[in-house]
Design a protein around this nucleic acid. Sequence first.
DNA 1: AGCATTCTTTGATCTGGGTCAAGGTGGCAA
DNA 2: TTGCCACCTTGACCCAGATCAAAGAATGCT
Lengths: 250, 250
Amino acid sequence: MLMTVHEAPLSAPSCGNCQIRHRAVCARCETDELAALDAIKFYRSFEAGQTLIWSGDRMDFVASVVTGVATLTQVMEDGRTQTVGLLFPSDFVGRPGRDHAPYNVIATTDLLMCCFRKKPFEELMGRTPHIGQRLLEMTLDELDAAREWMLLLGRKTAREKIASLLAIVARREASLHLRAPQGRMAFDLPLTREAMADYLGLTLETVSRQMSALKRDGIIVLEGKRHVSVPSFDRLLEEAGDDADGGFVG
Amino acid sequence: MLMTVHEAPLSAPSCGNCQIRHRAVCARCETDELAALDAIKFYRSFEAGQTLIWSGDRMDFVASVVTGVATLTQVMEDGRTQTVGLLFPSDFVGRPGRDHAPYNVIATTDLLMCCFRKKPFEELMGRTPHIGQRLLEMTLDELDAAREWMLLLGRKTAREKIASLLAIVARREASLHLRAPQGRMAFDLPLTREAMADYLGLTLETVSRQMSALKRDGIIVLEGKRHVSVPSFDRLLEEAGDDADGGFVG
DNA sequence: AGCATTCTTTGATCTGGGTCAAGGTGGCAA
DNA sequence: TTGCCACCTTGACCCAGATCAAAGAATGCT
């Protein structure tokens, strides 16, 4: 069973540990871990567009997304920008054992984060190997996702890139509602055209043109700029150029 | 899985644990860990060009590179290929808790791997949290490297890509000889032009042209096709477009 | 030595996506 | 209800890198 909706800061999620457990079952939660995590956690909320963390900032906490979407981005001296991670609810940011942020973390929608002070979190990790194991699994999944994205950035066409991104967003949105992604589906894009471009290694004009092309070709239906419906998820996957189920577990 | 298995080399590296510890000092090695790892390890060697593991293969071991260089590559149905990882000595392949390989692993030079049967390795990990922690650190480093590479693939020019790759190889070669990368340095490229292209998201012709351009501009000196010397490492880093120390810890 | 193979370089040409520029569109503040 | 501002779309043109083609090295085999 996947974890259900998290509530606002005042009424904390029923199982704070779920953040760490990243869509894993709660059944195995050990009470003391839960209490220990509860004791060091706090919530922060951000508005769409806000930069939560600047690259190079001191970061004295680790965190996981409760609701909303954020990006990790790298910026070159001359301003070229590449997004290197998309964070959906249950995704984790921050690295035990490093105290400066290597990326900008930007809220692309309104965002609620569940944070853990790093010091006590690290201590807790030392005491309960289980948390470290979970973190390892999550990190390995992220690594796979990053490598999948390397294929996209290095070898896919603009159209395939857009289709891949839409497929990933569709999948993640579906998983938030405990559904498998298939058939007709609809969702809101949590990203501006520019943010999409930064994730895909394109310009925003190309993103816009390819969105129009996919719409013209009936792969997607747009209502407004952000709401997308996908008549056939399989068709979308074909456009994404992925073999088989093609990809992200992320 | 096609591979020629030679027997364990007569003189194994003095501390097998170092593989896992990934360039860490051996001083902290705990005797029992070492013995336990020794008990489940074996060596395999491969020739340049051999594919050690095919994507989708059952993989019943994890391993680390002792000598030589290997790549992790993804291939699309139509043959487009993207390398998603470069493995130098001390780098780790394989994931506890997954039994099919997600990438092709290809030896780009003659290669010696130190392998651990997965089952006993996982059990050992369960008993000695220390190994899990080390693996987490290594995985987080790889994730950073992958994300750095995403910036390269998404936003850098062909010339910057080549310079970045040369800088990484120079750094890794230097670290094998326990030196800091700086000033004049020389090394052999462990990759063909095609393998470079696959890692950089370019064609081999573009790689060749840009190598010639960097040579013409005095950034590098080529002796033969593979031997590179770099008169000024700083100059190379500038060409790579990295800010500050720019990058890979890998 | 002669030939084949594999890797690399270089040239000529083409093109997908970038760049520059000009309008849409829609939400919201006054 | 108007006007602003942020976001998005579309068009015209351009260029970095792809593609197509040919011809050098280097190596190894007979």
